[in-house]
């Protein structure tokens, strides 16, 4: 398994599906899931490729609704995942 460098989590119930995170992501980890609808009636962003996350935090910087949490793993934690 490849090294996990970061992890992104989205509070899907609060997401308005604007998609600003999807264009901010350099690795195309996030996409809008048009097959689902959340409680607010929007199609939320989902983590399509968790292994690609670099933990850069660009998605969270662009999120207008502050629903994204990003963590970055240090080298020790990365080694544990190999």
């Amino acid at each position: 398994m490849a090294e996990l460098r970061g992890r992104v989590r989205i509070a899907a119930d609060r997401c308005k599906g604007c998609g600003l995170c999807t264009i901010a992501c350099p690795e195309e980890v996030l996409v809008i899931d048009h097959r689902t609808v959340n409680l607010k009636g929007y199609s939320p962003a989902v983590v399509a490729q968790p292994s690609g996350c670099l933990g850069c935090g660009n998605c969270a910087l662009m999120c207008p609704d502050s629903v994204i949490t990003v963590e970055r793993f240090g080298k020790q934690r990365r080694a544990a995942h190999v």
């Binding site: 933990g55 963590e71 970055r72 793993f73």
Partner: peptide
């Protein structure tokens, strides 16, 4: 593990009334 970004304590828990992408 470092939390790079999480919801700020300077914001309340309320969801905003702004349009998507505002």
């Amino acid at each position: 593990m470092t939390v790079v970004h999480a919801r700020s304590k300077g914001l309340t828990d309320r969801e905003t009334h702004y349009c998507p992408g505002c």
